[in-house]
Design a protein around this nucleic acid. Sequence first.
DNA 1: TAGTGGTCTAGACCACTAC
DNA 2: TAGTGGTCTAGACCACTAT
Lengths: 241, 241
Amino acid sequence: MKRSQEMSLRHLEIAEYLIGKICSGQYAVNEKIPSENELCRQFNVNRNTVRLAVGRLTNLGWVTPIHGKGCYVNQIPEPIVYVLSSKTRFSENMKKQGLAHSSQLIDWHKANATEGEQKSLGLVDTDLVYRLEILRCIDQKPVSITTTIIPEQEVPLFEEHLTNFQSLYQILIEHYQIHPVRAKSSFQASLASLKDAELLDLPENVPILQIESMMNHPAGTPLEYSVARIRGDMHKCLVEF
Amino acid sequence: MKRSQEMSLRHLEIAEYLIGKICSGQYAVNEKIPSENELCRQFNVNRNTVRLAVGRLTNLGWVTPIHGKGCYVNQIPEPIVYVLSSKTRFSENMKKQGLAHSSQLIDWHKANATEGEQKSLGLVDTDLVYRLEILRCIDQKPVSITTTIIPEQEVPLFEEHLTNFQSLYQILIEHYQIHPVRAKSSFQASLASLKDAELLDLPENVPILQIESMMNHPAGTPLEYSVARIRGDMHKCLVEF
DNA sequence: TAGTGGTCTAGACCACTAC
DNA sequence: TAGTGGTCTAGACCACTAT
């Protein structure tokens, strides 16, 4: 309707050209593509048009512009595979793949459960929950942010274990003898919120894979609800049936 | 690092303001937000800046601009839930939710299997595969594109059943007595390719949920490999463990 | 015809990096 | 200091919709 095939927009043309150069290796990984001004001269277009083209490459994950330096070609390796099953956790996945990982508690508080949280976790009006924001890194680079909701009654005096936080599941297992089991997960694609983009050090408009999960006690009663956001183009969630 | 909290960019400010107005209902669903020129006057900024702000809302799924008319506020209903299990298919999911749906075969051909396809499907060099591109609609609106690869040996004379295409699985069941079973699926978030964006009638930079699936025979031998792309912010894939 | 969104040019000023 | 990317202004021309 709007964009029929022969209608070639200038900035999309330039983007395709640049992607071709990267695919063919003419712009090598970890090297710079030509500067915006250089591209303006090459294509005889305005810098705004070049910026639209480069912006598309950025959103698609091909390049990362660095202020004052230039625009670098990304690795685009095979995406990191994250296997989801009833038992798997972030740490175990990373360990299996031999990737150095760490978790960081960036925020937490205790508060009344919202209506949705009450419903998901089988709580009543007066129940309190802990809400944790956890940033996970691979090779020192931030890859995911997870918001975790867990009822106070499951983890009394939880705050005592949050100093020197290393791993949520380590705390659950060591101090509460709780072994969570994944009950269900749902997947959505979205764009990073401003806050998430900042924490994950991502440009705007990079696609995010959002994974909402319910974790239960082995017996089946609800235990924990979480929403994880990971950079979508460099990771892959695998489910086996 | 780059975007600390107090640093408020003009276009992000305007975007936040507009989102607030939509959330609070001051800009009603299916109504227009003020025109770009009007917003220029309101915020005393250039039209390019306004367009950045509106572009963000568009990518986030809040609004859809229509050339010559205006920029309309979207429904943002609860996302359509698509339950993935070993047996579920698109049609059954939609039927369960009482949604009118249809499938359309937009392209197909028979060709040699690529190396990857050989590996996934257990084929050898000389084997042929059918490749289908299927567009699925809900309420006449395109929601997903699926590329399906199926070996010729599984479906001899497949082309005879592709005229008056209605449903892939109907053909498999009725003409070949094949009942596919989902073996595994992986999820990634990405941006729509230009072609997909056109087919799905989406603006650039809208996030896409990409689902790669292996379907097997009930006995466990590989049968079909597919990659589905659906608009990510209005759908949700649910997996139960 | 007037108003809307879509694309692009021209050019300013800034902050960051490298030398 | 020179070059780079980041943000924004100013304004042009176009295609589409409504009347």
